[in-house]
């Protein structure tokens, strides 16, 4: 446990010492602000962030979070610090979970900046706090999944560019392609693709619902990719 926190703190610190973190935050704030200003903040519109959360935020996160995760392991592999790291008394699980927690903490700070929008909206209308909570839980789960996918691909290569491309590609596919693709199919393949579509699972959180089915989907996927990342890191020893 101590090692996980140590690792997480180092990762979080490393973000703020590199320009990437600031670029990521800038892109995130600019795009989300743009969508809010044009889409949601209109006279007569509903006092919610539905326009932002329904589609745009998913797209923004799928593009921005890979930038955050690409260096997590790739940088250690490239610079060779993996050697000092893995010869310290720390396990592969602690390294992977620690890096995940560090990236999540940074992501949490990013999400906190979005709170400015409900505050602005509440000056002009009534914002439903339960709905907002659901939205945030959904965003944390969605981001958690994106971060673990990115973390996994980062353990696969020492080239950050390869890591970011693989991550963004896979995320875009999982999020946007599974649902339309499932329409082309019949029977059980269709059900499977529908069940794997990230956007479908995220949708209920936007509407203010927390369904156990969707919760289980995100938790399972996060667990799966963390497991894959640990295994990939353990494999390195045998190469």
């Amino acid at each position: 446990m101590g090692n996980i926190l140590t690792m997480a703190r180092r990762e979080l610190g490393a973000y703020f010492l590199s320009p990437i973190a600031y670029v990521v935050i800038a892109i995130f704030l600019f795009t989300s602000g743009l969508v809010f200003g044009i889409g949601a903040f209109q006279p007569g519109a509903e006092a919610s962030l539905r326009t932002l959360f329904d589609f745009w935020i998913i797209l923004i996160l799928a593009l921005v979070l890979p930038m955050l995760t690409m260096r997590l392991m790739s940088e250690e592999l490239r610079s060779g610090t993996i050697e000092t790291l893995m010869t310290a008394p720390i396990t592969e699980i602690e390294v992977v979970v620690g890096k995940f927690v560090g990236a999540m903490a940074f992501y949490g700070a990013m999400l906190a900046t979005l709170l400015i929008y409900p505050i602005i909206l509440s000056m002009y209308g009534n914002v439903d706090p339960v709905m907002l909570l659901c939205n945030y839980i959904g965003l944390l789960l969605l981001g958690g999944l994106y971060i673990t996918v990115g973390l996994f691909f980062s353990t696969c290569t020492k080239h950050q560019v390869v890591a970011i491309l693989l991550t963004a590609g896979v995320l875009a596919f999982m999020t946007f392609a599974f649902d339309p693709l499932s329409q082309l199919l019949e029977g059980w393949p269709r059900v499977i693709l529908q069940q794997l579509s990230v956007r479908t699972h995220f949708h209920d959180f936007v509407r203010g619902l927390i369904d156990l089915n969707h919760l289980a989907f995100f938790v399972t996927m996060v667990g799966l990719f963390l497991f894959l990342a640990v295994k990939r890191l353990e494999m390195r020893r045998w190469q």
């Binding site: 101590g2 090692n3 140590t6 690792m7 180092r10 610190g13 490393a14 010492l17 590199s18 610079s79 060779g80 610090t81 993996i82 050697e83 000092t84 010869t87 310290a88 008394p89 720390i90």
Partner: peptide, 26 residues
């Protein structure tokens, strides 16, 4: 262990790095 070519985290300060390593060592 001092690996060949001394890999370190360039963005950290020396004492920060040593604190990090010390924490990993409990």
């Amino acid at each position: 262990y001092l690996p060949e070519n001394t890999p370190l985290y360039p963005e950290m300060r020396g004492d920060e790095f040593l604190h990090f390593r010390g924490k990993l060592r409990g």
